[in-house]
């Protein structure tokens, strides 16, 4: 009986591995377990309406986690992820509200986000400063600058184009926003880059062993710069998705984006030490964070407890990574 269930469990994880790749099986099982617990404790959890809300709530963190994955794969970390995204929402909102063409406003905002990525990437690859310190500094600079610009207050952004990603389509009774679709497209495109192109190979190689990468002729500095710029560009897109979700630009928004995006990446099976992991795991990890926050909200638990649980989750995930490193 016992061995039979163990057997079927092994077969199940093999089947799962074919779809999500072996390293993502663990996170997938965690996601299913959380889903099971929440659906048993609250019948509303599995309602299609709630599942669609979970997806919508995952959009911002899920998109930010794409960039965070790229950076963590190179053995870096981005603590300015939320700040850069908020920079995008504030800039786009300010420009559009003061009469600029909304498409140009959003474009400029994405460019400004990418420029923050150029700054971070240049300091990290050129001066070889630690990513932790560089992005922490950028977080401080951007946060302070945004509060100065917006005089500390949030303001509404009612432009139709800036809110476009909040529109919905109905798929078989399941409501998805354009933002969800854009997020999934971004996952697909960056997955392709990481897994099917030379650039992606080199991202893994640099994260694994930068010295070996340099010796085989990979331009390590240029590669790191490209990673930080692409990540920040994606944060800019995330700003558009954020405006579609909440038509409001708030310099104090996304305070937990660092914790949430890093948690999504790490519980998705990407190693903080670089070179291992991938985007499918991150998508599952972002869904775990989304499911957890949604399930706890449905259960009527104070949002502060959600941060606490997320904090525990990220530490457990990193500890597991560290422990399994010894066996490799």
């Amino acid at each position: 009986m016992n061995s039979a269930s163990a057997l079927s469990f092994g077969r199940m994880s093999k089947i799962a591995a074919r779809f999500v790749g072996t390293p993502s099986v663990g996170p997938l099982l965690v996601l299913l377990a959380f889903g099971l617990i929440f659906s048993l404790t609250n019948p509303r959890f599995l309602a299609t309406q709630n599942l669609s809300i979970i997806l919508q709530q995952t959009v911002i963190i899920g998109t930010l986690a794409i960039g965070q994955t790229l950076i963590i794969l190179t053995a870096g970390i981005d603590l300015a992820v939320g700040a850069i995204c908020v920079l995008g929402t504030i800039l786009a909102g300010k420009l559009a509200n003061s009469g600029y063409d909304p498409i140009a406003a959003m474009g400029l905002a994405v460019l400004a986000c990418s420029a923050a990525g150029v700054a971070a990437g240049s300091l990290i690859s050129g001066l070889r400063l630690p990513p932790f310190i560089v992005t922490l500094g950028i977080l401080g600079i951007i946060t302070a600058a945004l509060r100065l610009i917006s005089a500390g207050g949030a303001f509404p952004v009612t432009d139709e184009f800036l809110g476009w990603t909040g529109n919905t389509v109905r798929l078989n009774g399941f409501i998805v926003t354009y933002g969800v679709i854009i997020m999934l497209l971004l996952y697909g495109m960056v997955w392709f880059l990481l897994n099917q192109t030379q650039w992606g190979r080199h991202v893994y190689a640099v994260g694994n062993n930068p010295e070996a990468a340099r010796l085989v002729g990979i331009p390590v500095g240029r590669l790191l710069l490209s990673v930080y710029v692409l990540a920040a560009f994606i944060y800019g897109i995330a700003a558009w998705l954020a405006l579609g979700r909440i038509p409001n630009a708030d310099p104090n928004a996304l305070q937990t984006a660092n914790l949430d995006s890093i948690t999504a990446v790490v519980i998705g099976g990407t190693s903080l030490f670089g070179g291992r992991g991938g985007l499918i795991g991150t998508l599952i990890g972002a869904l775990i964070v989304g499911v957890l926050r949604n399930g706890l909200t449905l259960a009527g638990i104070d949002p502060l407890w959600q941060d606490l649980v997320t904090g525990i989750l990220v530490i457990v995930a990193v500890a597991l990574d560290q422990l399994t490193r010894g066996r490799r």
């Binding site: 030379q198 190979r201 080199h202 893994y204 190689a205 694994n208 062993n209 010295e211 070996a212 990468a213 010796l215 085989v216 002729g217 990979i218 070179g275 291992r276 490799r328």
Partner: peptide
Amino acid sequence: LAVAAALDIASNLFLGRE
């Protein structure tokens, strides 16, 4: 050992010259 440990053998052989 100038190899990328987590990449497979074929990827390491062609590293930088994919």
